[in-house]
Amino acid sequence: MQIIQPHYHAIARTAQDYERMSMSGVVAVCEPAFWAGFDRRHPETFIDYFAQISEFEPTRAAEFGIRHFCWVAVNPKEAENVELTNEVLKQMPEFLDKPNCLGVGETGLHKSTPNEIAALEAHVEMAMKHDQLVLIHTPHLSDKAHGTKTVLEVLSGMDVNPDKIWIDHVEEETIEWVLDAGYWAGMTLYPVTKCSPRRAVDILEKYPTERLLVNSSADWGPSDPFTLQECIVEYRRRGHAVQEAVEIFHNNPCRFLGQNPKWDIKPIRITEE
């Protein structure tokens, strides 16, 4: 089965990930800009990072037959540094023009501070001005509900196209708010701190799937890109047809990401002989 990994932090992973993902049917990964585990001090560090994910990482993925796409943003944790954020924002449009860059992300909230909110607004404004997709991170654990509500409040006060916005890391407590507001919702599968593959399948069975995305967001922390495949196995084990799985794990990413013409992978239909 062909699989899209819509949220994957390749720079934190080894080539072995790519090899195994390729063997398991992954045809494309999308790498949003994120927090490196420490706060970067210089705008130039971000610029080099954006160059890494827009220029070098596609070549690494291509060795294993995987297409690599990216997103650029200052993540919410580092958005507390206003001067740095503003300087990076000035230089971001150059990267939005890169052939593999799909949009602005992951912006969003971490502790929902005024500086984070201002940065989120600035990122979304830039995305709408440049007709870009937006990937929005919602907070972890005890900050999630409040942060997700705040994201939705911020967006409701802006002139945005919900079709172009993906709000990520939803769980049982937040998914309805996101879908009811008309946005795309992403479930991120983590071994401990986010959604699990089984819980994600529960959500897939409970809600309309047309605007749902599933990813593993593998990064430098405890994470595993193959939670996505675990989710697919769990989904199939419950009796869902291959085509239903293809719709969720391949075609939905194509439908959302395909709003950017740089994404040229088309939805597929499995035919039976």
Binding site: P191, V192, T193, S196, R198, R199, D202
Partner: peptide, 8 residues
């Protein structure tokens, strides 16, 4: 995590 799995 484990309790959430039981709840689910």
């Amino acid at each position: 995590r484990d309790l959430l799995e039981v709840a689910a």
